[in-house]
Amino acid sequence: MNRSRRAALSAAIAVLAVTLGVTALTEPAYSAEPPSNGHGASTDKKGGTDGTGIYAAARIQYSGAVTKDGSTGNVTSSDVNWTPPPCWYAPYLGAKDFKKKMSEQIETAKNTPGMGGTAGAAIGEMQRHYEDEYGWTDTPGYKDYNVEKDGKGMFWAGVENPDEPDVLKRGSCNDLPFWVDNGKTPPPQYEEAVTPEILAALAYQRMQLPDTKVTLAPEATTKVNLPTWAWLDKAVFDEVQATAAINVPGFNIQATTTAKPVSLKLEPGTEDAETYPASGECAINADGSIGAPYAKGKADETPPCGLKYLRSSGNGTFKLRATITWEISWTGTGGAGGDLPNGTFGTTQDITVQEIQAVNR
């Protein structure tokens, strides 16, 4: 069978999934426990599919500083062109379970009104592929769904990333489920087969960074032309980690994504203000803190990190935004590792700025 014929067969599987109403859905489960650094939600989350349909796969377990509901986290990538994987191939079912699932769906499809013509022929070819060794050069067919190798490997299938907004990209892993022996890697043509790097990107996507509420002096209410000191202590401002893993018989991989804070940016919420330093970017100190706490006797000093408002906020407030830039890296199974784009996350605080009252004598 040539590649175009194979593509047509894969397309028929998509028709089968739509006809039977089976799609790759996210069905997370949670077991929360506090992370060691006190940030984010440490959960044992299982994201993936609900086990219905041929495009289901082994669930990914998430833990560490990740969202509680399996949704996208609060990290914004500094690289606007970076996106997490829209789909991937992952372990799905053993041979006997795959045979039972596929046989049921094929029979249902054959008995579904309107499933004739090209789609019906393609479904027949798919049945031959798994039952009668009907295949092609780079992927030979299977005899009786490979049941003689049950327990010695698994069929892999495409998994859609439910958080990918582009449906076409999400469904691009549409090849037929294929067999992988325990301890082996998928054939090279399946470039989207799950890897530690893919898991690292998925952990990045679900990472939950701590709120960035800086300590201010004066706090909440300040005066016009009065320098306001800003700082973050290391004790409440530390690196966070998120882990994604797949653990099934014969296949176990994981990746841990680590976010390390590197700088703080202050945006006063009005153009009538100055920042210290002038760029508004406060670098991290050697001890992991940012800025310096205000202490008695420093009133005439310029804060290393802070701001000064040049006019009153009147009857309202200014929205001070504090944004942390996080340096993000990952490590994974087999010594793999690398860098991911820096991430940012910011929060706003209401600041009241009052006029300094003068007394005339």
Score class of each variant (00 low, 15 high):
residue 249 P to C: 08
residue 354 Q to I: 08
residue 353 V to A: 09
residue 338 G to D: 07
residue 134 Y to Q: 08
residue 306 G to H: 01
residue 202 L to A: 06
residue 322 A to T: 15
residue 12 A to W: 03
residue 69 D to H: 07
residue 331 T to D: 11
residue 331 T to M: 12
residue 99 K to D: 06
residue 277 P to Q: 12
residue 250 G to A: 12
residue 47 G to T: 14
residue 123 I to A: 09
residue 6 R to F: 12
residue 53 G to H: 07
residue 65 A to C: 15
residue 200 A to T: 09
residue 211 D to A: 11
residue 288 G to I: 05
residue 153 G to K: 04
residue 82 W to T: 08
residue 191 E to T: 15
residue 295 A to K: 13
residue 206 R to L: 07
residue 318 F to G: 00
residue 60 I to Q: 03
residue 349 Q to H: 02
residue 307 L to A: 06
residue 41 A to D: 08
residue 302 T to Q: 15
residue 173 C to M: 06
residue 169 K to T: 02
residue 7 A to Y: 04
residue 203 A to M: 14
residue 147 V to Y: 00
residue 32 A to P: 01
residue 100 K to S: 10
residue 30 Y to S: 12
residue 99 K to Y: 04
residue 266 L to K: 09
residue 223 K to N: 08
residue 34 P to A: 15
residue 323 T to F: 11
residue 19 T to D: 12
residue 16 L to R: 10
residue 301 E to P: 01
residue 170 R to Q: 15
residue 351 I to L: 10
residue 292 A to D: 04
residue 200 A to M: 08
residue 15 V to G: 06
residue 311 R to V: 10
residue 305 C to R: 03
residue 15 V to I: 07
residue 179 W to G: 04
residue 353 V to E: 01
residue 112 T to I: 03
residue 87 C to D: 00
residue 240 V to C: 12
residue 306 G to Q: 06
residue 186 P to M: 10
residue 361 R to P: 03
residue 154 M to D: 00
residue 308 K to V: 13
residue 29 A to R: 12
residue 182 N to I: 04
residue 97 D to Y: 02
residue 300 D to N: 13
residue 18 V to Q: 14
residue 280 G to A: 14
residue 102 M to K: 01
residue 87 C to A: 05
residue 332 G to T: 05
residue 142 Y to M: 14
residue 163 D to I: 03
residue 153 G to R: 02
residue 61 Q to C: 03
residue 218 P to S: 04
residue 220 A to W: 07
residue 229 W to Q: 01
residue 115 M to I: 14
residue 103 S to N: 04
residue 304 P to S: 03
residue 324 I to H: 00
residue 29 A to T: 15
residue 104 E to L: 11
residue 297 G to W: 03
residue 253 I to M: 12
residue 305 C to N: 07
residue 104 E to D: 13
residue 187 P to F: 05
residue 121 A to E: 12
residue 56 A to H: 05
residue 148 E to L: 14
residue 42 S to M: 11
residue 148 E to G: 05
residue 122 A to P: 00
residue 356 I to R: 07
residue 342 N to T: 06
residue 234 K to G: 02
residue 296 K to L: 13
residue 159 V to T: 12
residue 185 T to I: 10
residue 340 L to K: 04
residue 84 P to S: 15
residue 73 G to T: 09
residue 49 T to N: 14
residue 121 A to H: 03
residue 162 P to Q: 05
residue 312 S to D: 06
residue 26 T to F: 10
residue 118 T to D: 12
residue 169 K to V: 04
residue 296 K to N: 12
residue 59 R to C: 00
residue 224 V to A: 06
residue 255 A to L: 11
residue 4 S to Q: 14
residue 268 P to N: 05
residue 89 Y to N: 07
residue 134 Y to P: 01
residue 243 T to R: 12
residue 294 Y to C: 01
residue 17 A to P: 00
residue 199 L to V: 11
residue 236 V to Y: 08
residue 41 A to Q: 02
residue 155 F to C: 07
residue 334 G to E: 11
residue 87 C to N: 04
residue 237 F to H: 12
residue 199 L to K: 08
residue 105 Q to D: 09
residue 314 G to K: 10
residue 131 E to W: 01
residue 335 G to A: 09
residue 157 A to N: 02
residue 135 G to M: 09
residue 275 T to S: 10
residue 323 T to M: 10
residue 202 L to E: 14
residue 304 P to N: 11
residue 305 C to A: 11
residue 195 T to R: 13
residue 30 Y to G: 04
